[in-house]
Design a protein around this nucleic acid. Structure first.
Lengths: 228, 228
DNA sequence: CGTATGGTTGAGGTAATTCAACCTGTGTGG
DNA sequence: CCACACAGGTTGAATTACCTCAACCATACG
């Protein structure tokens, strides 16, 4: 099944958006679409990395598992995000679907060749990489010396923003795409602390929970204040 | 003073190493060298960012200051590192010299033009950005759920490696380029905790301190074990 | 119906923070 | 040249936010 860029939900924002129509259709011929279900592994740490991909819909996690089996989530990947390491023969981290996700997969060799051929693609990837770096540093800033409360508030706001279709305003109600354990692994907390802090936020009437995953923001301003 | 790449200590490793001799000397004409003393500000958060630079010697920190005045160090920049944000009109973070440092500064416009002109430069920057991203994620992995002990061990090993001229083996004795406060800001700890943990490492005969900043590794293997 | 996964809640422990005092070396000005 | 201030560093005592351990509940699934 060949890629159909005209109906791609991220055709305006993904790296390939920097290409001309002709270039893009040439690139489209190299790739193939694939859908992953929640929990499916896109790339596995230590495995040879012969592909790279653009996420067109869904949500991925980039994570690392320590020797003792504990997982640390290093990053979430939202639609239009790019995954795959261009300069490493072997994957450093696991990439796993958190929700049903659709990716455009490209053979690594072909993509490298495309970068050589289309300088605009290199620039677009550089821009994306710079954004990823900025996000990673925001996470570092969050990790250090911040209370569990602030971490969770920041995460909820980020997820609310991602769930919203309008780019600026956060969604007022959404489903958490992460388990408590995944939230904990992302924030560097324990499951119990995440659960208790969510309870506390509900206690303070800042959020409302519907079932295990449903979140409604009752007071987004106060949540933002907690996140600083 | 024009740049003299032939004597540049990072001519093999910096982004410009990807260029041909002719391209490189063309780029060299655009830049100028400058030395910064400890504490001098290279880029200031919030200020217009009209330059980018390659670090040829010394050490920089990329940091962020919260409203309450507390500093978080997001990254250290070692020689051959690249600083400056290509796609942001305004600097997001402070960049400050930790030791006497020498940089090759390029006007941003000229550098952007050079990227357009020399595709190899774009690829080299992409590679560097990917490395920075990997390092940032290593920091994230370090931040979450790790003991103060492990964080400090990891930092000491990284600094020992940076202080060594041979790339693989860490230096056995070196001067810390960071104050206790900066170590704390980098690791997400307090000054007191850093001080106590250093004391503990000396107590266990894993390191030896000479003055406030001198470190000698007595048992690098055990230090590596603590860092995991 | 039994098991597994995900989630909540409670009690107790602890590592790191906070607050505070004190030390040392360095630079400055009377 | 001494007095003083100041920045960086160490050490101690008390506090606390988070972790650990453990029990329990809900839902889904074979």
């Amino acid at each position: 099944m060949p890629l159909d860029c005209t109906s791609c939900p991220v055709r305006e924002r993904a790296a390939c958006a920097a290409l001309t129509a002709a270039e893009r259709s040439e690139l489209a011929c190299l790739g193939k679409g694939r859908t992953y279900r929640r929990g499916e592994v896109v790339f596995s740490a230590g495995a040879p990395l012969d592909a790279c991909a653009t996420l067109t819909s869904g949500l991925l996690k980039i994570s690392q598992t320590a020797q003792d089996g504990s997982e640390r989530i290093l990053s979430l990947v939202h639609p239009a995000g790019f995954v795959g390491e261009m300069f490493a023969p072997v994957a450093h981290h696991d990439v796993i679907a958190l929700t049903e996700s659709h990716l455009c997969l490209f053979p690594r060799r072909s993509y490298e060749a495309a970068i050589e051929r289309f300088p605009a693609l290199a620039t677009a990837l550089l821009r994306r990489s710079a954004q990823d770096l900025f996000d990673a540093r925001a996470q570092i800033a969050l990790d250090g010396r911040r209370s569990a409360n602030a971490k969770l508030a920041t995460l909820l706001l980020a997820l609310a923003r991602a769930a919203s279709h309008s780019p600026c305003h956060p969604a007022t109600a959404f489903e958490l795409p992460l388990t408590r354990g995944e939230m904990a692994a992302l924030l560097g907390l324990t499951i119990e602390t995440v659960s208790r802090q969510l309870g506390a936020l509900e206690e303070e009437a800042i959020i409302e929970r519907e079932g295990a995953r449903g979140i409604r923001l009752l007071n987004a301003a106060q949540l933002a204040a907690l996140a600083q």
